[in-house]
């Protein structure tokens, strides 16, 4: 199972190319880092891979993606700002269960306490929200996860906790993980290989 980008390029409308001719492959069960300066288009590439946007040239391919986009996508994305990735008017329970109903074991592995689920996003910290966003992304049909600066806004302790839990789950389920981060020590610590981007 592969998540592949072939000669992908992107630009706004008819503006300058942000990047062109990017080839990238993530295999099932592999943890790949993507590092580069801010403004180089790491996030855009992540969004292209996750199917949030269509590339201006080249193709992104993954087995099991529905062309109409009306089914659960095999590639899920986790964002830098969890507070923007959840509906502020929903209790967390509804958010966590939006795609599928996670087993209690999964929530426990991610350190999500049952009490959080009855609260609103404004009543939880960034780290707690991010754990919920990760749980939401780990549906049974998920084959790849794109983590875009997933723990940049969190403190080191929470960061270590989240990544340890995430790596255990990803290894066990043979999910391919693309880690987008500017933090080189983090990438070299958790990734099997890393790709420098835009340098």
């Amino acid at each position: 199972m592969l998540l592949e980008a072939n000669h992908v390029g992107w630009r706004y409308d008819k503006g300058d190319w942000l990047f062109r001719n990017v080839d990238l492959t993530v295999r099932a069960g592999e943890v790949v880092g993507l590092t580069g300066p801010s403004g180089s288009g790491k996030t855009t590439l992540g969004r292209l891979l996750a199917g949030y946007m269509q590339p201006a040239e080249g193709t992104v391919s993954v087995q099991g993606r529905s062309p109409g986009g009306n089914a659960h996508d095999p590639v899920q994305m986790v964002f830098q700002h969890p507070e923007r990735a959840v509906n502020p008017r929903w209790r967390l329970e509804k958010t966590v269960k939006e795609g599928f109903v996670p087993e209690p074991g999964l929530l426990e592995a991610l350190g999500i306490r049952p009490a959080w689920l009855s609260r609103y996003p404004s009543e939880l910290s960034g780290g707690e929200l991010q754990r919920c966003c990760i749980a939401r992304a780990l549906g049974p049909e998920t084959r790849f996860i794109v983590a875009d600066e997933m723990t940049t806004m969190l403190d080191a302790v929470t960061q270590a906790q989240i990544w340890h839990a995430m790596l255990d789950i990803v290894r066990e389920r043979q999910i391919g993980l693309l880690v987008i981060s500017h933090d080189r020590p983090l990438v070299s610590r958790i990734c099997d290989r890393s790709i420098p981007f835009g340098e």
């Binding site: 350190g111 609260r119 910290s125 780290g127 707690e128 270590a160």
Partner: peptide
């Protein structure tokens, strides 16, 4: 990682 859920909230 630290055991437990990190920072207390609420």
């Amino acid at each position: 990682p630290l055991k437990g859920a990190g920072q207390a909230s609420g």
